[in-house]
Simulated assay, not measured.
Amino acid sequence: MRNIIPNPEANFPETFKSLFLNGPEGGVDSCNCLVSRCPPGHKGPRLHTHVVDQFYFVLKGETTVQIGTEIFKVPPMHMVHFPAGTPHCNWNETEDYEQHFELMVPRPPSDRLIDYWEGEVPTVPDAARLIQPFREEDYTQGRLFASAHLARRETGSPHVRVYAARVPPNGPSLPLHFHDFDQFYYVFGGELTIQVGHERAVARPGDLVMLPKGTVHTNLNLGPAPEYHLAILIPEPGVGEQFDYKVQIAYSDEKPFVNEPVKA
């Protein structure tokens, strides 16, 4: 399925490296999505800025980040927000590999992916607020899945809403639907079955699901354990705007989409 970008981890070298899942010259043009790995003792690019907002979601290990003049230790299941123009960098001081998912939104020009900082480093007011911890107890149970918000307009992220989702095994699915915004799922635990139109496939940890505006889709968990993913909405719907549009398909053999196992 072309909507699922497979996990690229097998291509990591033994140095700091970022691998694109979406962008900068292909895929869905509302953002860049990457996964980065930093071996023990290695560093990312020196102090720099971006012309767009950037987010890190730490998956494994611990990263040390500098935000302005301050330095923080960031463990797994924490999201870091670097607003556009914020000087920052990261490195790994531990003996374990560190890995994180990255989001750049909106998509920056291909010739302005990074601007290195020169001169005196400024202090970023209340820099600690840019690090959002995430715990299992932060989930709020909804009708079909549990969610925990990590970034949204009201918390200083004007371009995107990001939340962590926990989908129970063998639970019900939403009807087929589409959105007026681009949606992405980054799977970090379990398996998520995706249906796009009439086609079905399974997204596994490290895979990115891309659902451009207007894509008719649904998802559910047919695995034996809960499934976990980041849901990314670009742009975040405004207050009072319709979130999704239900779609009903009449099959010639009257066989609807059912919760059946999907072959790998």
Rank of each mutant, 00 (worst) to 15 (best):
R107C: 07
P40K: 12
G27R: 00
C31S: 12
V167H: 03
E70V: 02
A148F: 00
L113S: 10
G189V: 10
P39W: 08
P108T: 12
I67Q: 03
N219T: 15
G189T: 12
F16E: 15
P168Y: 04
F145T: 02
E70Y: 02
P83H: 08
P39F: 04
F134A: 00
L34W: 01
I71V: 11
K17R: 15
A164C: 11
E120P: 09
V121H: 12
P125K: 06
G214V: 01
P39T: 09
T69Q: 14
Y186E: 06
L47M: 11
Y245N: 10
I249C: 01
L192A: 05
V28I: 07
I131H: 03
P168M: 06
V202R: 07
K17D: 06
C89V: 02
G142E: 03
N11M: 12
R135I: 00
P168K: 14
N92Q: 07
D111M: 01
V80I: 12
F178I: 08
Q195M: 11
L208M: 11
I232Y: 00
V58E: 04
F57L: 03
V262Q: 03
I67D: 00
D111E: 08
A264M: 07
E191R: 04
V51K: 09
L220A: 15
S147L: 13
L220S: 14
A201S: 15
F55Y: 15
Y245T: 11
E236Y: 04
A10F: 09
E227C: 14
G85E: 10
D115W: 01
E70P: 06
R107E: 01
P237I: 10
P133L: 05
Q66Y: 03
R161P: 03
M79Y: 13
Y228C: 10
I249L: 13
T63Q: 09
F55A: 13
H229S: 13
L113N: 11
K246V: 13
L47Y: 10
V124C: 13
V209M: 04
L174I: 02
T218Q: 02
K43Q: 11
I67F: 07
G214Y: 01
W117A: 12
D244H: 06
N170V: 03
L34V: 11
E93S: 07
G171Y: 08
V105K: 02
V239I: 05
P168S: 05
L130F: 11
F101S: 01
A127S: 12
H159R: 09
T140F: 07
T218V: 01
A225P: 00
P224R: 05
T49R: 10
T218D: 04
